[in-house]
Computed example of a mutant assay.
Amino acid sequence: MTPEQENLLFESIGSIKASQEAILNSVAEIKADIHHSIEKSEARQKVVTDALKVELKDSEKRQIAAINKQDERLTKVEEKLTNQRVKVAAMGGTAGLAVSLIAYAVKNGLMN
């Protein structure tokens, strides 16, 4: 091999080595960019997930409050209805007693 051929061979080897280093550096940069993108995406997903968890808890609290409010309303309505039934029954009993007394009085001639 002539010195000129050796020189060309070393130049080619040097050029190949430089190309390989450039490729490896590019791959390392791409890998770093991918990792950065993944970390950024995971951080965004965590923020969204955390926000959804908070919204879900708030929604559950609102639903429980609404259910409790409806239960309270139902209890009040049931109490009022029961009180009305008692009043109606009492009035019915009183009216029945009055009718019975009037019927007794008419029967016995006390109303003439």
Results as ranks from 00 to 15, higher is better:
64 I>T: 04
67 I>S: 12
55 E>H: 04
4 E>C: 05
35 H>A: 06
108 N>E: 10
87 K>F: 05
57 K>G: 02
86 V>A: 14
70 Q>A: 14
104 Y>P: 00
92 G>N: 03
83 N>E: 14
13 I>E: 07
24 L>Q: 09
50 D>T: 00
69 K>R: 02
31 K>D: 10
84 Q>R: 15
105 A>N: 04
107 K>Q: 05
112 N>K: 01
80 K>Q: 14
110 L>Q: 15
84 Q>E: 15
25 N>D: 15
11 E>L: 06
70 Q>M: 13
108 N>W: 02
103 A>S: 15
25 N>I: 05
77 V>P: 02
13 I>Y: 06
68 N>F: 02
57 K>Q: 09
70 Q>K: 06
51 A>R: 02
45 Q>I: 03
46 K>P: 00
16 I>V: 14
101 L>G: 01
90 A>G: 01
39 E>H: 02
84 Q>F: 04
110 L>I: 05
67 I>H: 07
8 L>I: 11
20 Q>L: 15
1 M>K: 06
89 A>R: 06
88 V>M: 13
70 Q>E: 15
89 A>K: 07
40 K>S: 13
58 D>K: 11
75 T>N: 05
65 A>T: 03
73 R>F: 03
30 I>A: 10
44 R>K: 14
96 G>N: 12
98 A>C: 10
9 L>V: 12
78 E>H: 05
58 D>V: 08
14 G>V: 11
19 S>M: 08
3 P>A: 10
62 R>I: 01
72 E>Y: 08
34 I>W: 01
48 V>G: 00
103 A>N: 11
12 S>P: 00
